[in-house]
Simulated scan of single mutants.
Amino acid sequence: MPTSSRYPVLWPLATLLAVVAVTLAVGWLADQALQRVAARHPQAPVWPLLRRCRIPLQLVVATGLLLAGQPLERLFDVRDGELHHVVLLLLLACLGWLTVRIVAAALEAVLGRYESVTDDAARVQRVRTQIGMLRRVVSAVIAVVTAAAMLLTFHAMRTVGASLLASAGILGIVAGIAAQSTLGNFFAGLQIAFGDTVRIGDTVVVDGQQGTVEEITLSYLVVRLWDYRRLIVPVSYFVSRPFENWTRRDPGLLAWVLLHLDHRTPVDQLRAALHRLLVDSPLWDGMEWSLQITDSTPSTLVVRAAMTARTPDDAAVLRFEVREQLFAYLRDEHPYALPRIRTGEAP
């Protein structure tokens, strides 16, 4: 009598242990192979990134072996095919997960390679935004295809397939009307990613609030404000309304400070003091600076100090420093230059 007949539990248990052993061995061998290839080709970032695919790869191997050997059906004495169907669904889901991981690793490797050979920060930001959007689109397509393949494994879905295809036109119209806003945001996201209007890391002004673009998705855009709040804006906003992008072509920015001073202010000496402050400041990029009288009132002069900085953040800090140090200079050296409110007649 065969061993499997006398001991009906031993054979499926041995098969199940073999599946576990093969799964662990495949994961270990794949990880070791990727480590060796990465050590031989350190300039190629794709191999270390592919190591993230170890868990979905092991799950694919495990579910594939369970589907082929059917040890669970024999162990639990299930013959109606329900457990087989569950394992098949898990295999399809794991295949989709593995595909998403491989695509993400490949796109991140492309971005890393581009960053290593390009010194232009604007181009790097543009490529990072485009690759991030492309990864989300491809992941969404893979998820839809995987879900469709899983649904087609059900007999009822195959039976009603002809009916669904016959009514696809009507369903498409209804779905398009219902998801008009979602589809609008989706295509707006693609337009932003490949139209180069706004990128991750850009400094923008939205509804009077300045912030840095932190994340771009298919439906919304996250702007980090100066006080670390996050402003969530639909991507359709950036293709239908005007907004300010301070770093689209050049991250450098012209900062300015307005001072209301007394008419007796020694403007030439104040201009020289501004130049000394800028030379000593690491935030000034050394490109442009000026100090001019832009307006006057019956009681004050309006003096504007302008200077350039490398980034919007540097420009903001430089404005604060210049304003503080110029007032300190006037207070210590020329106190009469600070404006006063006169309540009596002048002599």
Results as ranks from 00 to 15, higher is better:
residue 191 Q to I: 07
residue 128 R to Y: 10
residue 137 V to A: 15
residue 165 L to D: 06
residue 172 G to R: 02
residue 134 L to T: 15
residue 136 R to C: 03
residue 169 G to A: 12
residue 161 G to H: 05
residue 169 G to E: 09
residue 175 A to E: 05
residue 169 G to P: 07
residue 193 A to M: 05
residue 153 T to H: 03
residue 160 V to K: 10
residue 176 G to D: 04
residue 137 V to N: 12
residue 128 R to E: 13
residue 121 A to T: 15
residue 135 R to F: 01
residue 135 R to L: 01
residue 161 G to Y: 01
residue 178 A to E: 00
residue 123 R to Y: 14
residue 162 A to W: 01
residue 169 G to T: 08
residue 187 F to E: 02
residue 168 A to H: 14
residue 142 I to E: 07
residue 190 L to T: 03
residue 186 F to I: 04
residue 171 L to I: 04
residue 194 F to I: 09
residue 177 I to G: 03
residue 140 A to P: 01
residue 161 G to E: 04
residue 131 I to A: 01
residue 193 A to D: 03
residue 185 N to E: 02
residue 187 F to N: 01
residue 167 S to W: 06
residue 194 F to A: 07
residue 159 T to N: 10
residue 140 A to V: 09
residue 151 L to A: 13
residue 140 A to K: 00
residue 160 V to L: 08
residue 183 L to A: 06
residue 185 N to T: 00
residue 135 R to G: 15
residue 195 G to S: 09
residue 120 D to C: 12
residue 177 I to N: 06
residue 172 G to K: 01
residue 149 A to Y: 01
residue 120 D to L: 10
residue 167 S to Y: 08
residue 155 H to W: 01
residue 128 R to W: 09
residue 150 M to G: 12
residue 164 L to F: 13
residue 185 N to D: 05
residue 123 R to F: 11
residue 182 T to H: 05
residue 149 A to F: 04
residue 157 M to I: 09
residue 159 T to M: 04
residue 135 R to Y: 05
residue 122 A to M: 13
residue 141 V to H: 00
residue 144 V to K: 04
residue 160 V to I: 11
residue 154 F to C: 03
residue 126 R to I: 04
residue 147 A to S: 11
residue 119 D to F: 12
residue 143 A to L: 14
residue 168 A to I: 11
residue 178 A to S: 00
residue 144 V to C: 14
residue 169 G to I: 03
residue 132 G to D: 14
residue 142 I to M: 08
residue 153 T to W: 02
residue 194 F to L: 11
residue 123 R to Q: 15
residue 143 A to S: 12
residue 194 F to Q: 08
residue 195 G to D: 09
residue 170 I to L: 15
residue 175 A to H: 05
residue 173 I to D: 05
